[in-house]
Simulated assay, not measured.
Amino acid sequence: MPMRVTQTIIACCLAAWASLGLSASHAGEAAHPVSINLAFDRPINAGEAPVIVGMTDGLFAAEGLAVTTSTAAGSPEAIARVTSGSSEFALVDLNALIRFRSQSSVPVKAVFVLFNKAPYAIVARKSRGIHVLSDLEGKTFGIADSDLSAGLWPALAHQNGIHLDHVKQSRISAAVREPMLSAGQVDAVAGFSYLSAVNLRDRGVPADDLAVLRFADYGCDAYGFAIIVNPAFADKHPDAVKGFVRALIAATNLTIRDEGHAVDQVLTRMDEGTRDLELERLHAVIRDNIMTDEVNRNGLGAVDPVRLERSIDQVGEGFKFGKRPSAADIFDDRFLPPRADRLIN
């Protein structure tokens, strides 16, 4: 083939890649995808919909990423997988990362916050006399040791003038949380609003008998689920981390625009699940945890450092820090695109 013809073909190929907004390095990544394992901290439900949509709709693949998932037994285990390198990314409770960083020098950080507000809530029966948070005084409150909301409960009570010794706390297993409240063995439980409240309605508890007291509505500044990344991987593959974040932003927008499609994709990854239940769950997540006023102003994925500092102090009221981490220890904004590219569209 003549040299001039060869040069013309190469130039046309490079122009085609440029028209797609891709660099030569991205072209290489597309030919040789970067393999990524993302650890979930619990079995999949509609709360993980944006990640699932990113996989099933090819958004991660379009960024040159081959994403697989695994499931850990809680956020601490998922964080351990990332720090060991067995998973490059994980979706974890940011407050678990705060606790981890207070005890460890491993510089793992979050790079994208999916839940701008933590889903922690106290779910109570109105028929037991609980309508607002102060009604908990004199009542029996079931809380699981594994539930990270237990660490924020002291700060929440203090902020709202509730005496902890006036509330009877019953340590229970997370597995029996909803059944015990349904049976009237406790007056209220701590859990996630989109899990416990929706599960209780599914168990036959009338919606008008449930009081869902969200921590965020009573002064809790905590962020919720966030993507963390192995620091060595981030140093070696910064473009892959940026691509992952871009794909997740696109997937979150798609999830918001078409909840039904998102739930259909989630159901393909669940062992059990009903469309109506997961659709209700996803709608609650988007309304209460993702599309907040802060996100509408500042875009998806970011944090307000001042708010994050306050939330760290609130975690510290219920959990003894080895060394208090700073907001900079918890969140790294280098991989986020500009605000204009993160606004919900």
Rank of each mutant, 00 (worst) to 15 (best):
S134F: 05
S104G: 02
G142S: 08
H158I: 00
P179I: 10
A155K: 03
K168N: 11
G138Y: 07
E178A: 08
G161H: 14
E137P: 07
K168W: 08
L97Q: 09
S173E: 13
N116V: 03
S182G: 10
D135H: 11
Q103V: 01
A118G: 04
R101S: 14
Y120W: 07
G161S: 15
K117I: 09
S86Y: 02
G138H: 07
F112S: 06
G142D: 00
I143W: 12
A110E: 04
R171V: 15
V108I: 15
P179R: 12
Q159I: 11
D145S: 15
A124P: 05
G142R: 09
S102E: 03
D165M: 07
H163I: 12
L148F: 08
V111I: 14
M180D: 05
P107S: 04
V132M: 09
H163R: 15
V111E: 11
I122M: 08
L114E: 11
K126C: 07
V113P: 12
P179Q: 11
E137T: 05
L148Q: 13
G138K: 09
L148A: 06
V92Q: 00
D147F: 15
A118K: 05
P107G: 03
H163K: 15
I162S: 04
F100Y: 14
V108G: 12
F115C: 00
S170M: 13
S134P: 05
A121L: 02
S127V: 03
S87C: 13
G151P: 06
A90Y: 02
L94R: 08
S86N: 12
S105E: 13
V132T: 13
L164G: 10
H131Y: 13
S87F: 11
V111A: 01
L148I: 07
V176R: 03
L94H: 01
D135Q: 11
L152N: 00
L156T: 02
G85Q: 06
A174V: 10
A175K: 08
L164D: 09
